[in-house]
Design a protein around this nucleic acid. Structure first.
Lengths: 219, 219
DNA sequence: CGTGTATTTGAACCGCCTCAATCCCTGTGG
DNA sequence: CCACAGGGATTGAGGCGGTTCAAATACACG
C-alpha cells in the first residue's frame, strides 16, 4: 500500500534540469496507457480537465490556435514530461502527438490528488514535476523574448538535445518539423530554415538530413 | 496543530484565473515579513534557493539580465503570487521590487515542504499556486509568441487589470514602467510607447497620465 | 514512379529597433 | 517661488531583421 519505495529516488537530491527520466512508478497501476497517431489530439482545447498525462515515448506539442489562424506552441513534451496541469476546470491548450505512435499515460486527476493526499512522497514528486514545467516555460520565455532568429533556433536545439532521451553520438533526430519549431519560437518557417542553414554555414551545427542535427561543441 | 481550517477554502472549487486573493493563512506563523525599497533585489540571480516567497503588497518582477545587457522579465508578481519555485538548487532568475515598500513574506523551503508532507491541505493549496504560475507563464508565452506590438501591449494591460487587486472604477494604476513592459513583451520602450498611443488613439484604452490606464470595454 | 508534403531559397515589403531629440513630471536647491 | 536637474515618456527618421509571397528542390509514401 505504501508506495514510496517504488518511486524514483530523487525528490530531495535535485534532479536534472528540465525532466525526470521516468514516469513515476508509484502511479503505474493507475495509468491508462494509450498510443496516438501523428497529429492526433490527445487533449482538445477547452476540453474538460479530468485527467493528467505523462508522455511515455514519442513526443507531443502543447499549443493553441488563435482566431487568426496563427498557432503557438507553448511546450514540447518528451518522455517523462507531465502535462494537463491547470488551475481552471478546462484545458486551455490542446496537446497533440508530434510523432507516430506516441505513447501517453493518463491518470484521473481526482485519483492523483487523492494519492498525493495520502502519500507525501507522491506529492513531492508531483511538485518536482511542476517545478520543472515552470522552469522549462521560463527558460523558453527567455528565448522567445530576448533572442534573434539564429540564436533562438540554436537555443531551441540546445535545450532539446539536453532533454532528448535517446541521444546518439552522431547527433539527435528532431522529433519536430520546421513548422513546429517556427510556431514555438514565434518565427515563420522560412526564417527557421534560413537560421538553420546559417548555423550550418557558421559551423554551429551539422546537418545530416533535415531531421538529423548535431550541435558542434564550439561556437 | 491541524491547520487546514485556516486555509482559504478554494482547493477543490476552482479559483480565479491567475492568482489567489490572499496568502495562505496556514503558513502565517512561519512567515518572515520584509519591506523592500524600489528596484532592490529580493532574490539575486543564481542565489542559493533556501526560501519561497509570497508577495503581500506592492509588486515585483522576476527577471534575468543576459550577458549582452538585454533584460527579460519572465513574470510580474502581484499580491498573492508565490515565487522562488525551482527544480534546481539555485534561483535562475532575480526578483526585484517594482514599487516602493513592496512587502514580501518568505518561508523556509524546507519547512514548507515539511508542512506539505504533514498536511495534505497545505500541499493542495501549494499545488494550486504552482498551477497558476504555469498558467500565467503559458498565457504570457502566447502573447510574446504570436502577437504584434499593439496587441501585445493590449493583452498585457488586460491580463494585468484582471490580476490587480485594487482596481478603481476609473481604471488602474500601472505598477510598472514602460521599460518593464518592454522587457516583458520583448519590445523596445519606444515601441511600447507607440503602441500605447495607438491604443489610445484607436479608443481601446484611455490614458489619464502615463500610469493611469483604463481599458475600454469595446474594441 | 508519381503525388503530396516538408524543406529550402529568392525577392520585396513591413514592423520593430536604433539613434536622436523633445516633452513631461517630480523633486531639489537657490 | 522659480530654475534646474534627472528620469520617465513620447515622437521622429532611417536601417535591419523577419514576414510574406513565390518558386524550386528534396523527400516519404503508395
Amino acid at each position: 500500500m505504501h508506495s514510496s519505495a517504488q518511486l524514483s529516488a530523487n525528490t530531495s537530491t535535485l534532479p536534472p534540469k528540465y525532466s525526470l527520466p521516468t514516469p513515476p512508478l508509484a502511479l503505474q497501476s493507475y495509468a491508462n496507457i494509450k498510443r496516438w497517431p501523428r497529429d492526433q489530439d490527445i487533449v482538445y482545447q477547452d476540453e474538460w480537465a479530468e485527467d493528467l498525462y505523462c508522455v511515455i515515448s514519442g513526443a507531443a506539442r502543447q499549443c493553441i490556435v488563435r482566431p487568426d489562424g496563427r498557432r503557438q506552441i507553448v511546450d514540447i513534451l518528451l518522455p517523462g514530461d507531465f502535462f494537463g496541469f491547470t488551475p481552471s476546470s478546462t484545458h486551455r491548450f490542446a496537446v497533440q502527438a508530434v510523432v507516430e505512435d506516441t505513447i501517453v499515460a493518463s491518470y484521473s486527476r481526482r485519483r492523483i490528488e487523492e494519492m498525493a493526499d495520502n502519500d507525501p512522497q507522491v506529492a513531492r514528486e508531483f511538485r518536482q514535476r511542476l517545478y520543472m514545467t515552470i522552469s522549462r516555460l521560463q527558460e523558453h520565455l527567455l528565448v522567445v523574448g530576448t533572442m534573434r532568429a539564429p540564436e533562438k533556433v540554436r537555443a531551441f536545439l540546445a535545450h532539446l538535445s539536453e532533454r532528448i532521451p535517446d541521444l546518439r553520438n552522431d547527433g539527435m533526430v528532431l522529433p519536430v518539423s520546421r513548422y513546429d519549431i517556427a510556431d514555438q519560437l514565434g518565427l515563420s518557417v522560412e526564417t527557421v530554415c534560413r537560421a538553420m542553414t546559417e548555423l550550418k554555414t557558421s559551423g554551429a551545427i551539422h546537418l545530416g538530413g533535415p531531421r538529423k542535427v548535431q550541435i558542434t561543441a564550439q561556437h
